[in-house]
């Protein structure tokens, strides 16, 4: 695993190919949408998808924690798939979560899926986290952000053209002011980074970092021209 350094607002951040972001200067690890207990959410609706998604997600997170040994973890919201998710957490999974985060300061940024603090779990729930030049929130705010913002929510992914056709992967999206993290959960899909919902937040274009086996693959995107014109956009 080779992380890629990224400088935002004078801070040196590390993008991890596992799909999370480290801020070594502050011994902080930042993780996007976990969507824990998405499986049991479906099961409640009568679709018994395998109940191992939470364990899978936590195990991946556990690996990253051992790699970075952070003092603080910021979860960027939608950590649970729904407000009742924390209540459905299996005892083993809750124990694993406690064990691996023992001695780590845990901050739950609230998301649209989990607008309330997870009951019975350690950590602090907040609307957003402000630290130095960085603001951590679930959904990126439209318009200029000062000095810089770290967010999740959109589950970005992108297709890189190669000589044998496009290869699609989840990705980070970043410019000089914003970093958007891919979703981390085992059952999370993705939205293309070219979608207006994402591209509109990066009006001058962005750099994409696609997740690979051991490293990230970077590519730039052009300014979001498609947004301005719809009819003649392809000329």
């Amino acid at each position: 695993m080779t992380p890629a350094p990224l400088h935002v607002a004078g801070e040196r951040l590390m993008l991890d190919p596992a799909g999370l972001l480290a801020w070594p200067a502050r011994r902080t690890l930042v993780v996007g949408d976990l969507h824990l207990e998405k499986g049991s959410h479906f099961a409640r609706g009568g679709r018994f998808v395998p109940p191992y998604d939470t364990r899978e997600t936590l195990q991946r997170l556990h690996l990253a924690l051992r790699r970075w040994r952070p003092a603080r973890v910021i979860l960027l919201g939608d950590s649970f798939h729904d407000a009742g998710g924390a209540g459905r957490l299996a005892a083993e999974d809750a124990a694993l979560l406690r064990r691996m985060l023992d001695g780590v300061e845990l901050l739950w940024v609230l998301g649209n899926h989990d607008p309330v603090a997870p009951a019975g779990l350690p950590g602090t729930a907040l609307e957003e986290v402000q630290d130095g030049p960085l603001t951590f929130r679930h959904e990126a705010r439209r318009g200029p952000v000062k000095p810089a913002e770290i967010s999740g929510h959109f589950h970005p992914k992108a297709t890189m053209p190669t000589r044998c056709g496009g290869v699609t992967r989840p990705c980070f999206v970043a410019d000089a002011w914003r970093v958007m993290l891919p979703a981390f959960g085992a059952y999370t899909g993705g939205l293309d980074a070219g979608d207006p919902a994402i591209a509109g937040l990066f009006p001058r274009g962005a750099r994409l970092f696609l997740l690979g086996q051991d490293r990230l693959y970077s590519m730039p995107t052009g300014p979001a021209r498609g947004l301005r014109v719809t009819a003649a956009g392809s000329a």
């Binding site: 496009g166 989840p170 979608d195 997740l211």
Partner: peptide
């Protein structure tokens, strides 16, 4: 020509699982 326009077609992701398991 310039690649532009929204690329929403990509939401039909074929290779999602590989990337996820590779993460």
């Amino acid at each position: 020509r310039q690649r532009d326009r929204k690329q929403r077609f990509n939401r039909f992701i074929r290779s999602a699982p590989k990337s996820v398991s590779g993460a």
